[in-house]
Write a protein that binds this DNA or RNA. Structure first.
Ligand SMILES: [Zn+2]
Ligand SMILES: [Zn+2]
Ligand SMILES: [Zn+2]
Ligand SMILES: [Zn+2]
Lengths: 145, 145
DNA sequence: GTCCAGTTGCGACTGAGTCTCAGTATCTTG
DNA sequence: CAAGATACTGAGACTCAGTCGCAACTGGAC
C-alpha cells in the first residue's frame, strides 16, 4: 500500500511530467491493498469519470513499474496484475481469497539462490519469488464459519 | 529435459486417450532443453507437417501441465512459456541468453517460505520461485570473446 | 506569453488463448 | 472383431490484453 503523494513524488523525481492523467492514476493506485489489473484501473477511472484512455493507463503503469512504485506479478491463473509497493528488493505474498498483497523481505533467499547457482553452474542474476496462500483475515473468516 | 516415452506413459497413466496428435506433441516436447511457447510448438509442428491444430496444442499442453510433465513459467518479458520437467516439486533456473532451463531442488526454500508466513501472518499454500541468469555454457562463451 | 518535447486519447491493430461444432478416432465391452 | 459411447480433433470465429501511429494538446522551462 502506498499513498498518492508518494506516487506523484516518484514521478516528478524520475523526470516524468506531472500531468493530470498521471495525478488521476496516482489516486487510483494509492491505498490499494490487493493486486489489480490494468483493466481494474480502467473501470475505476470510468466510474469516476476521469476520462483516462486505455493506452494512457498502460503507459503510466509502465512508468510506475520502471520507478519501482508498482510491480508486475503473475497470478497462478496466468493473469498479469500489479501491486503497489516500495522500490527495495522484496517479495510478494498474495492472498488467494481476497487478493491482498503483502510484501516480505528476503530472509534466507539470497543464500538459497546462491546455492542453486552453485548446484546448477548458472550465474544467477535475478530471481522472482511469489507466495500464495490465505491472509490472516481470510484465515480468521474461514475459521469462524 | 524429458523423453517422448515418458510423456506418452504419463498421458496413458493419467487416463488420457493416446491419440496421434498427442504422440506427435510428445515428440515435439521431448528433448527440449529450453523453454518454449505454444507457438513454438505450432511452428515446429507445421515444419514437420504434422497437421496439428492450434487448439489441440493448447489443450494438450494443458493436459501435460496437469500431469506435471510440463510447467508454465513466466518470463521476465511477460511472456508465458513452458518447460518440460518432472512432477516433483522443484524450481527453474532459466538462462536469459539461450533459454535453457534447468531445475533445482528446494534447498532451504521451504524454511524461508515458512518464515515469511510467520512474519506476514499468512498461511502459505504454494510458492513459485524462478531464477534468471546465464548458464555455464553461455557464461563460457561470453568469457572467451 | 511562447515554444517544443513529452504526453494524451482515439481507434486500428496484433497475437495469445478460448469456444463451438461437426466430424473422427479411441477404448471398452461383448 | 464389431459396435457404441465418448473423448478428442481441426477449422475458424471470437475475445481480450496490450501495442502502435497519429493528430491534438499541455506542462514547464525560458
Ligand atoms: Zn485474504
Ligand atoms: Zn529476493
Ligand atoms: Zn545459456
Ligand atoms: Zn519450492
Amino acid at each position: 500500500m502506498v499513498n498518492a503523494r508518494d506516487v506523484i513524488g516518484a514521478l516528478e523525481h524520475g523526470g516524468y511530467r506531472l500531468t493530470a492523467p498521471r495525478r488521476a492514476l496516482a489516486s487510483l493506485v494509492a491505498g490499494r491493498e490487493g493486486h489489480f489489473t490494468a483493466d481494474d484501473l480502467l473501470d475505476a477511472a470510468r466510474r469516476r469519470h476521469l476520462g483516462l484512455g486505455r493506452a494512457t493507463i498502460f503507459r503510466a503503469l509502465d512508468a510506475l513499474a520502471e520507478l519501482g512504485i508498482v510491480e508486475r506479478i503473475d497470478l497462478p491463473s496466468g493473469e498479469h496484475a500489479f501491486v503497489a509497493c516500495e522500490a527495495a528488493h522484496h517479495h510478494h505474498v498474495v492472498c488467494s481469497s481476497c487478493g491482498r498483497a503483502t510484501w516480505a523481505s528476503d530472509h534466507g533467499l539470497e543464500r538459497v539462490a546462491a546455492e542453486i547457482g552453485r548446484e546448477t553452474g548458472y550465474r544467477i542474476d535475478t530471481h522472482r519469488l511469489e507466495l500464495f496462500g490465505l491472509c490472516a483475515e481470510c484465515l480468521a473468516a474461514k475459521a469462524s464459519t
